[in-house]
Structures are given as structure tokens and as C-alpha cells.
Amino acid sequence: MIDALFYLLAGLTVIGAIATVTVGNLLHAAIAFIGALLSTACLFLLMGNEFVALMQIMVYAGGVVIFVVYTILLTTRSGENMPRPPLPAVVTALVISVLSGAVLAWRGAAAAAAGDPSMPEKLGLGDIGRRLLAIDGGFLVPFELISLLLLAALVGATSVARNRAEHGDEPVTGEDAA
């Protein structure tokens, strides 16, 4: 059962990854990319690494891809019909991905055979959170200080984005800024 689920998710990841580089529309590519990242996160979940899975979703599927999608939507429509990449580029990309895949498979098989003793203890999501934000020896103080950082970012963004029309100059519109 677990094996079948693994092959299903692994297949989805590979299909998503291939679709990302082959579809002609940039937005579709981004969505295929999300699919690949989400199924990778599910693979991590399957192995019992909730924390890594959550990070995968938050940082990659959440942060990075949303940023990419925003960039595509906000810029011109040039992403709708991407030109085919030249053949040498395709060949180079294929060689690099096959090579790195082979290296990973080889090293992974070697580590699995040796039964890597340096494997860290497995921690649940709650344990990691408790350890990170422990009063003694955790990162509680920097975590609280991030609130100042967010305040600075908020004030700074408002200050920069504010329309300066009342200043007696031309207001800066989005098009000018771009």
C-alpha cells in the first residue's frame, strides 16, 4: 500500500517536473511546478518527516511559486507563448539532469546499504517547534525581534509606495516605476 502510494507520488512529481519545462505557457509551467513541489512534500510526509514537508510547502510551494506567479501576472503577456529552446540547450539540460540523478541514486543506494549511522533522531513537528522557541537555548528572542522587522518592512513599503502628488511633483504611477 505504502509502496503503491510512493510510486504514485513519485510519478506525479516526475510528470509535474517534465511539464514545467515543456509546456509553452509560463503560467501553466508555474502551476505544474507547484504540482511537482506539492507531491515532493507528500513524499516527505510519507517518510514521516512532517517538518521538512511543511517547510517544502511553506517555502517553495507557498513563497517561491506565489512570487513567480505574481511576477508573471504583473509583467507583460510575453509568457503566453514561449519559444522552443534551442537543441543544444535541451541536450545539455538532459545530460546534466541524468548525471545528477545518477549521482543521487548511486549515493543514496550506497547510504541505504551502509545504513548511515549519522542519521539524526526523528523529531515530531511539535518537538521541533518547542525546541526552536524554548526559553532556554532556543531562538525565542530573535523570533520576537522579527516583529520589529515586520514593522519596519510595513512602514518602509508604505513610505515608498505612497503617492507623492501632494508634494507638488508628478505622482509616480506603477507604469513609471516599472
Binding site: 522587522l149 518592512a153 518602509g156 513599503a157
Partner: peptide, 10 residues
């Protein structure tokens, strides 16, 4: 980051 972000907007 706190220093950098404040100074970017300044």
C-alpha cells in the same frame, strides 16, 4: 534585515 529594510526605504 531590520537595518537593511529600514535603510532601503530611507
Amino acid at each position: 534585515e531590520l537595518a537593511s529594510i529600514s535603510i532601503y526605504s530611507a
